[in-house]
């Protein structure tokens, strides 16, 4: 889930210790730069090559394919921006994008808010035995494949699954239903799988950030007579700006680019209610064999992710400085 993280934050907050006079150091570096230039480029070459061949070239091809109608086998026809117009026109594709944005609520907001709340309540005993055990447990969803999360939860959500069993046990049998088959609950249900996966990571990241806050700040606030709420909003939240930006970025990308969980749990159903761009690209390209249309949606998805994520990085950088 966090493999496509972004941002420029560095975990380190201490400065690199500098030795030697700054002046001579700077000159030495300059001279060396010229000498090392060639070697450096040579060292970058293998990584750059892999990146160009397997990322940038396919990216460029996605853009190129998106202007054609092509079934992958026979000749292609240039169609200009038709494929992009179709994204707006066809409810299936535009709907998939809206669904992805709705997923942000579950993949992002819930884990971050709940993570903040929990981390704030437990920061007082962050080093206790219970907290240490919880690290291991809460990380489990992070290390298993999303496919496995999808399989587990599909079963929990089934009409005779555990979710309904629990509801009946606490007297809420009336709301029991086949969660993934119901038009109103399918998307939230799928979204909560994402929340389950992300919660542990977000909580622990925020907790780690909280333990770095100078306790003197809190003491000062207490002396000023601040209550826990003001403390939280005046000290904790601003200090965590970077961690929050990271959590939001990681989970927003996971929401917009979701595929694994949906593929396994609902295949986009019922009635396209959980269809997301990732799955629609897959269906268009490999099942309908509309390569151009699939590529246009892929380009739109890449652009959307950038549009949403870049502003977040500003927040992140401000927090850094």
């Amino acid at each position: 889930m966090n493999q496509r993280l972004t941002g420029r934050a560095s975990a380190r907050r201490e400065d690199t210790p500098a030795l030697g006079s700054p002046e001579s150091r700077r000159r030495a570096i300059k001279a060396r730069r010229l000498r090392r230039g060639g070697l450096a480029l040579l060292l970058v070459a293998p990584a750059a090559l892999a990146y160009i061949v397997f990322v940038l070239r396919p990216m460029a091809q996605s853009i190129q394919f998106s202007f054609y109608e092509w079934n992958g086998v026979t000749e292609s026809t240039w169609v200009g921006l038709d494929n992009y117009a179709a994204i707006l026109r066809e409810p299936e594709m535009s709907g998939s994008i809206l669904n992805a944005f709705q997923l942000i609520i579950y993949f992002s907001f819930i884990p971050v808010l709940l993570g903040l709340f929990t981390a704030n309540t437990i920061r007082g005993f962050a080093t206790s035995r219970l907290a240490i055990v919880s690290r291991t447990v809460l990380f489990l969803p992070q290390i298993i494949p999303l496919v496995a999360a999808g399989i587990m939860w599909s079963w929990l959500y089934a009409s005779n699954g555990m979710v309904n069993q629990v509801l009946e046990a606490i007297g809420l049998g009336g709301v029991a239903r086949a969660w993934l088959g119901d038009f109103d609950t399918a998307l939230p249900a799928v979204g909560l799988i994402g929340a389950w996966v992300a919660l542990g990571l977000c909580m622990l990241l925020l907790l780690a950030g909280m333990t770095k806050i100078d306790p003197a700040l809190y003491e000062a606030a207490r002396i000023d007579g601040a209550g826990p709420w003001r403390e939280f909003f005046a000290i904790t939240l601003p200090s965590l700006r970077q961690e929050i930006a990271v959590c939001v970025t990681v989970t927003v990308i996971a929401a917009l680019a979701s595929f694994d969980i949906i593929y396994i749990s609902t295949q986009g159903g019922p009635g396209n209610r959980t269809l997301v761009p990732g799955l629609e690209i897959y269906r268009l390209a490999f099942f309908n064999r509309e390569i151009g249309q699939a590529s246009a949606l892929a380009v739109a998805l890449m652009a959307l992710v950038l549009l949403v994520v870049l502003p977040l990085q500003r927040l992140n950088r401000e927090g850094d400085s």
Binding site: R4, R57, P58, M59, G72, I253, A298, V299, M302
Partner: peptide
């Protein structure tokens, strides 16, 4: 510049390149 070019790829959804990768 090289670094920025690499960083661009950090946000890339895999679905964005999967179709060309298939044909490649």
């Amino acid at each position: 510049i090289i670094l920025v070019a690499f960083v661009l790829g950090l946000t890339l959804p895999r679905e964005g390149v999967i179709v060309p990768l298939y044909y490649q």
